[in-house]
């Protein structure tokens, strides 16, 4: 009984910790722009309104940022996961010299201070014409998500019973059939998990997003949020910003709701087995 009560308290605390700030943004987003501008220090809105969402939905620049973020993150994720799958397969299954070197490079890159790159990258990108373009963001996103993807995938791949492939071949399946029918279904969840984690990373990026873009041509959501323009020429509109924040948080909540098991498995896979 006592443990149950303790668990209940712990549960409530965790839920409060995780959801309270989200509730705060949600509540803020229902405050009218006028209420927030006049100072509205209480938690709940005095007069809830959906106007802020309407403003955000009609904001062409924000729409562009959403398209940019989705497009760039998806492309970067796809490419990154493809490259990582190849690499992780090699690391998990093949015995080759320099495996450790590859893993060390991945580790070093995962720890890399990204800000120290924006200067030279900006300088390079402006010469190559990549500044403020989608590829200009896709490339760095790929590089920085690869370590995470490689780790997650190689951890998953190590668990796959590869003998089954040979068994299938012995049973008369061609190499391709064996790969498609046996290995793909086994590897798919890992690839999918790696893709989600990679997507989160790209979706969350801010440093590259503000440094390597300058217009809505490529500016992603986090940067657009930081530049949000409201009716007050001098201050960002608190409640509209909250509404925009809510709108970019909803996809995350949906992904998390649908795939929580996979995400947790992916996050912890590489870590424990080292």
């Amino acid at each position: 009984m006592r443990t149950k009560v303790g668990q209940g308290i712990g549960l409530v605390l965790i839920l409060l910790w995780c959801l309270f700030p989200v509730a705060w943004i949600l509540s803020l987003s229902f405050k009218s722009v006028e209420e927030a501008a006049a100072g509205s220090p209480q938690f709940l809105p005095k007069d809830p309104t959906l106007d802020t969402y309407q403003v955000v939905l009609q904001d062409a620049d924000f729409q562009r940022a959403l398209i940019n973020s989705f497009g760039i993150s998806l492309i970067a994720t796809t490419l990154s996961v493809i490259l990582a799958t190849l690499a992780a397969y090699a690391i998990a299954r093949l015995d080759f010299t320099g495996k450790r070197v590859v893993l060390s490079i991945a580790l070093a890159i995962a720890m890399f201070p990204v800000v120290s790159l924006v200067g030279p990258l900006f300088d390079q990108w402006r010469v190559l014409g990549l500044f403020d373009t989608w590829p200009g963001l896709i490339i760095p996103y790929m590089s920085f998500t690869l370590p995470l993807a490689i780790w997650t995938l190689s951890a998953f791949f190590r668990e796959i019973p590869w003998e089954m492939e040979q068994a299938a071949q012995v049973d008369g399946a061609t190499a391709w059939q064996a790969f498609r029918k046996v290995i793909v279904p086994l590897a798919a969840p890992g690839v999918f998990t790696a893709a989600i984690l990679t997507f989160f990373f790209a979706w969350n990026d801010f440093v590259f997003g503000i440094s390597l873009t300058s217009t809505t041509d490529a500016r992603p959501v986090p940067a657009q949020l930081a530049f949000f323009v409201g009716p007050d020429q001098f201050n960002a509109p608190t409640s509209t910003l909250a509404a925009a924040s809510m709108m970019v948080t909803v996809p995350i909540i949906i992904i998390v709701l649908l795939f929580q098991r996979k995400i947790v498995a992916g996050l912890t896979s590489g870590a424990v087995k080292g």
């Binding site: 995780c18 969350n204 929580q260």
Partner: peptide, 13 residues
């Protein structure tokens, strides 16, 4: 699920 929300939320948000 809820513990993954802060993890997934954009840092800027």
């Amino acid at each position: 699920t809820s513990i993954l929300i802060p993890y997934g939320i954009i840092t800027v948000v």
